[in-house]
Design a protein around this nucleic acid. Sequence first.
DNA 1: ACCTATCTGATGGCTG
DNA 2: CAGCCATCAGAT
Length: 836
Amino acid sequence: MKALTAWSDDAGTVTWIERDATGRVLTRQSAGHAVTFLRMADVSRELMRSLRASRAVSSVAQDGAWLRVVWRSVHARREACERKGWFASNNIDTFEADVPAVRRWAIDSGVEVQRPRLVYLDIETCARVPMSEKEKMRVLCWTLIAGDDGRVITGMLAEDTDADEGRLLAELWAALADFDQVAAWNGDGFDYPVVFARSARCNLRVDARRWLWLDHLELYRRMHTTAESGDEKQSMALQAVAMAVLGEGKLPGFTFDRIFPAWEAGGEERAALLAYNVHDVALMRRIEERTGYVELLYTLCDATGTFPDTHGMKPMPQVETFVMRLGLADGVHFPTKWRREEGEDAPGAFRGAFVMEPTSSGIVTERVHVADFTAMYPSIVQTFNMSPETLLARVEMPSFPSYLSHLAREWVPPPRPEYAAEAATGCYFDQRRRGLLPRTLDMALALRKKWSDLKATLPPGTPEWVEADRRSTAYKVFANSVFGVVSAEMSRLHTREVGESITQTGVWLIQATMRAAQECGLNVIYGDTDSLFVTGCTDENFRAFVQTCNDVLYPRLLAERGCVENRVKLAYEKAFDRVVFLSAKRYVARWAHYKGTLPDARTKPEVKGIEYKRGDSCRLVRQMQAEIIDLLMGGGINGPRVEVCQDDPEKYRALVGRWRERVLVLPLELEDVALAKRLTKPIKEYAVRVKKDGADYASPPHVRVAKLLAARGADMGEGSRVSYFVANGLADPVTVLPAADWTGECDRFAVWEDQVWEPAARLLGAAFPAEGWKEYARARPVVPRRAPARRAGATVAPAPESAPTGQPAGVAGVFSLTAPSPRPRRAIVRGGGTKR
DNA sequence: ACCTATCTGATGGCTG
DNA sequence: CAGCCATCAGAT
């Protein structure tokens, strides 16, 4: 069975699209996919009779230990199988009764996902209504570019009439007939709903379910996890991504409000609009050429039995479909899983990974060796044979109040059966038959190895190499998402005990490894989840330590717990010759080697967690941190890596002085100070808390800005990125304005004190803990009471002596870096003049 | 409709 | 009113 895509109706009939060998599109159907499984053991003769007699049931059939009940409609199945339905009130467990018909069909038929014909789409529309009413926007033109050969097809509105828009859209649908998968940048947020709404309005009879609708932006966001700095994370607009990936952006001159006038002017301007439209689509095709993300998605979907549209990117359908295919063959089915009801308690979260607080402060100049577990969570699942159906009854560890803690030592767990392995939670897992999750990972990781081995035999960069690389990556991505899905409460594969057994066995392994290292005289300075950072030995010593762990320590520990097979493996991944830790999960480091390979002049330092890496920080602090990192780690970001690192704090003071002047005095661009955050839910869902005095709490800044933009007609849905800047840091709450309102002015003092200095100081303070850095913190001028801040005549709090002084020429004569008073003083104006 | 750990910033309550 | 704490939200 082959299919490009499929959909279903309430009767449980699945319709799918297939291309035959000649490329012809065939539409096919199959009925009877609203299914429930019952355990045969639960099916009395009486139940069987009533099922057969029921008008809601179309057939029943025994399959091993299971009874497959096929319903006449999805609706009827739901009524019978939901929480308070007939089966529940008769205490009969149902299995997989919530599985959508298309999923059921894909699992049962073992469908082969055909490679779709990909086309990129972009439309231009008139801006006579606000973005929030996008469905009312007239479509002015569209462009399609074929994924395979790049041929361009376009359509242009001739007259500003409904009739001509209908003609334009009909041509679009006709052109789409050659393709199966449509990719548009933010397509789910704009192009697709607009095209559907306008087509419906023009009474075009098209069934859009025949295509795979893929949001290229969403795909890029999910797959692009290797961004070097926060610059690439600040905006996911096509312009920003094209610049980052291709070094080239959109054609200039067409802001949204210029589009309709250009169309209206006709002639060359209209042609220019179309050229702009075509250029955008061409950018998308080139982005895919570079990234291969659409291809990677297809590979993942092909491997798991899902379809490559936006929905198919999600790990839950991928993992569940793959596991349920195995389960079907094995005679394993999963309990029916309905959405949690309103007011129902969420099950408690479970304990996660172990993260060690870094023990070293200042610049670590000793060699730091880093070892990590290879695919730690998958290897734990494989080694312990962890799976929902291999989990034996949990051995509940009683929790004692602290004043009874002496009892904890006396408590003896029930004996472990000889066929079970015991995870670090005290859960036992049956070793007598391989579980579904371990088998899933066995298959995925074996295939990953097959493709990466093949890759190693191929000339790098060739199409065969790229394809092998992609397949290897796809299986890795898939294997890594299994833990997340099993731990997701909404997943039918979810078992709290399995999720927690995975993480806690990880904790046990890393802690045992750290203890072993200490017993060998090594100095463990940090570790997170599956890694440990060690000083105090040579490369050879550390390599030997890792080998001993693998050869002796883990085999012994795992055998003691009853594991039959050992997949746990520690690897000596890398070493650094300088590291600065700021805190857990935040550090910068200079490479000594990666798996034995030495760095060269292009090698960048490793940066984790700090603002330089974050898309919600302002560009000024990212650039300032980059310069500090380059000094600390011997270059690599703004210039080639060099041998010399700077340890003299005065070098850093000079840098701080320069940056302080830059932020407080020199001209600033919007991009320097803009902050960007995503709305993770619809605006209305942000909790409105009530203060003691009865007034509402202020929302977070980005939400306030989003509300303002929404009131102006912007489309501020869930997931929107809101870009804004601080206009007045003294106001309570802080005054923030949308990026669109930028006129060249902002609250420089707030930018320095809150956005730039604080994060930079954390890095400097971590590298030079003995140095005092406080003198740079205050920048706000001392203002006479009741006088508004940030007015001509105000002065900046004094800079320390080593900072450059004197006012640069040409800057609007507002600030002076030389202070009137000798010492920095606490600024100011709380509750007075400017506070509102 | 992928998890937990961790850090950070904004907001506002409380207290010495 | 500075300093601490709790809470919410977002990013990694």
